[in-house]
Amino acid sequence: MNDNEKRLVDLVADMDEDLALALAQEMLDNGDDPLRILELCREAMDIVGKRFENGEYFLPELILAGEMLDQIGGLAKPLIKHSSDKPVVALPRVLIGTVHGDLHDIGKNIVTFMLDINGFEVKDIGIDVPVAVFLEEIKAFKPQVVCLSGFLTLAFDSMKETIQAIEAAGLREGLKIQIGGGQIDETIRAFTGADGYGLNAVDAVNFSRISTGG
């Protein structure tokens, strides 16, 4: 890693948005490989994720890290002329959505971002997701983990219903299901029949790691 590369990782990881964007632009102008720039951003995200898990960073930093990743991605991606020489590694897959009846998505979006920067291929299917859509998406995307999100108490029944439908459709085998949201606890995990529950994004990442042998 040369000096500029190291500096870019540090600037992103330390939340120095303006300087990070300027340096990324400068490196791209100087002909640095845009794929390498994206790789450096991933390395910075690793650091951000660890600092979040250690209680050093909180939501403002996670959100800003996501913004920086998007902005640098916006600069680098149009310049990509060739595909990476590296073989594509299949990442463990996680499907996530807010259950039907519930329109909340702040928590879900944060979990999605944390899973993404922790090496999962995450498909976010939005809010107020009907049971049938979960079933279709599980069949098409073939995730190892399904995350059901919900903030309201009405989500308890929606989660239970979704999990029962997944079972009834014969899709539960080999699949780990976790639930999460403001009101979720062990009682609701047992009530819904989920495999695990999480109170925050770190719980979601840990559950997904364990469930996918990570």
Partner: peptide
Amino acid sequence: GAKGILTDMRR
């Protein structure tokens, strides 16, 4: 909004 206020704390 959530995203706005959280980034404002930094930006």
